[in-house]
C-alpha cells in the first residue's frame, strides 16, 4: 500500500541528478491523515520525494491528491502524521514529543522555499505579469526592485512570455497566465515545486505550452510534485507515479511500468478510463 521510505542507495550531490530519482530525500510524508469534519480525506499516506525527482500523483476526483499537495505547504493542516521538507517538520515544532503550532511568521518562512502552482492560476489581477513575479521577491525577500525585475524578465523569457511582461492577467490566455504563475513561483527560488492540476482549467490547445515549461523545469533538476490528469506527461517526465484513491496510495512506482502494467484493479479501472 505504501512506498518504502528509506531505501537511499548512494547519496548524490544535488543538482547533478537532472533526470534520475536518486537524490537525497527532500520531502518525507509519514502516515499522514486529514479529516474535514468527520470526512476522512487522507487515510495514512506515506511517500518520499527525492531531490531532483518528478513525482506525479494521479487519481479520481476526491481521492485526496490535491489535499495532500496542499498539506505540504500548509494551505491545509494535517490531522495526524508528519511531513518533513529537508529536516523541517512542516507546520509544527516538536518539543519533547509534543507538537506546537508554528507562528504565522514561521509558517511564512517555511513556505518561501516551496513554490505552488494552482489549477486556477490565481495571478494577482491588479498587477501586470512582471509585477506579479517581482511581488514576493521584493516584499518577502527584500530583493531590490531592479534585480528582481532583471530576474523576472529572465523567468518570463524562460516561459516564453518576455514580450508579455506588461500585460495584465486578464489580457493573457489561460496557458499564458499559468506560465506567468510558474515564473512567479520560481522567482522565490524554491527547492520544491508543487503543481495542483496545472492544466485542468486550460483549453486543450494551450495545455502543451504549460507542459513544455514544466518539462524544461524538470530537466533543470527541480524537485516537483505534480497532481495531474495528464498521463502522457507522467509517462514522459515523471520519475515516479503514484495512484491515489479514497485517501490512500493504491500503488506507486516507475510511471512507464505502472501505466503499462497496473497491479491493482482500481488502478486498472482508472487508467482504462483516462487513457
Amino acid at each position: 500500500m505504501s512506498t518504502p521510505i528509506n531505501d537511499i542507495t548512494a547519496p548524490h550531490p544535488a543538482g547533478t541528478q537532472a533526470d534520475s530519482a536518486a537524490g537525497d530525500p527532500l520531502v518525507r510524508i509519514q502516515d499522514v491523515h486529514k479529516f474535514f469534519g468527520s470526512h476522512h480525506v487522507l487515510c495514512g499516506i506515506d511517500m518520499t520525494v527525492r531531490q531532483g525527482e518528478v513525482s506525479v500523483i494521479i487519481g479520481p476526483s476526491g481521492s485526496g491528491k490535491s489535499t495532500l499537495l496542499r498539506c505540504i505547504n500548509m494551505l491545509e493542516t494535517i490531522s495526524a502524521g508528519r511531513i518533513y521538507v529537508r529536516e523541517d517538520l512542516i507546520g509544527f515544532r516538536e518539543v519533547k514529543g509534543q507538537l506546537h503550532d508554528l507562528t504565522p511568521k514561521q509558517v511564512a518562512v517555511q513556505r518561501r522555499d516551496i513554490g505552488m502552482v494552482f489549477q486556477r492560476f490565481n495571478l494577482f489581477p491588479h498587477r501586470t505579469a512582471l509585477q506579479n513575479i517581482i511581488e514576493a521577491p521584493t516584499q518577502v525577500k527584500r530583493v531590490s526592485k531592479t534585480s528582481a525585475r532583471t530576474k523576472a524578465m529572465e523567468l518570463l523569457d524562460r516561459v516564453g512570455l518576455a514580450d508579455h511582461a506588461n500585460h495584465y492577467p486578464a489580457q493573457l490566455s489561460g496557458g499564458q497566465q499559468q506560465r506567468v504563475a510558474i515564473a512567479r513561483a520560481l522567482a522565490m527560488e524554491p527547492e520544491l515545486m508543487l503543481f495542483d492540476e496545472p492544466t485542468s482549467a486550460l483549453d486543450p490547445e494551450l495545455v502543451g505550452d504549460v507542459l513544455n515549461v514544466m518539462k524544461d523545469l524538470a530537466k533543470s533538476g527541480m524537485t516537483m510534485i505534480v497532481v495531474t490528469h495528464e498521463i502522457g506527461f507522467a509517462r514522459e517526465v515523471g520519475d515516479t507515479l503514484t495512484f491515489m484513491d479514497a485517501g490512500v496510495v493504491v500503488e506507486s512506482g516507475d510511471p512507464r511500468e505502472l501505466i503499462a502494467n497496473p497491479q491493482h484493479a482500481r488502478t486498472q479501472e482508472f487508467l482504462s478510463r483516462v487513457l
Binding site: N73, L75, P104, K105, A108, V109, R111, R112, I114, G115, M116, F118, R120, N122, L123, F124, P125, H126, E135, A136, Q139, V140, A181, R184, A185, M188
Partner: peptide, 25 residues
C-alpha cells in the same frame, strides 16, 4: 479566496497580503 492562497504560498505575511493583494482588489 485563491488570491489569499497564492500570496500565502509565496511566503507573504498576512498583513502584507491584506494590504498589497486583497485590499487593492
Amino acid at each position: 479566496a485563491g488570491q489569499m492562497e497564492a500570496a500565502e504560498a509565496l511566503g507573504m505575511r498576512r498583513s502584507k497580503i491584506m494590504w498589497r493583494i486583497i485590499l487593492p482588489q
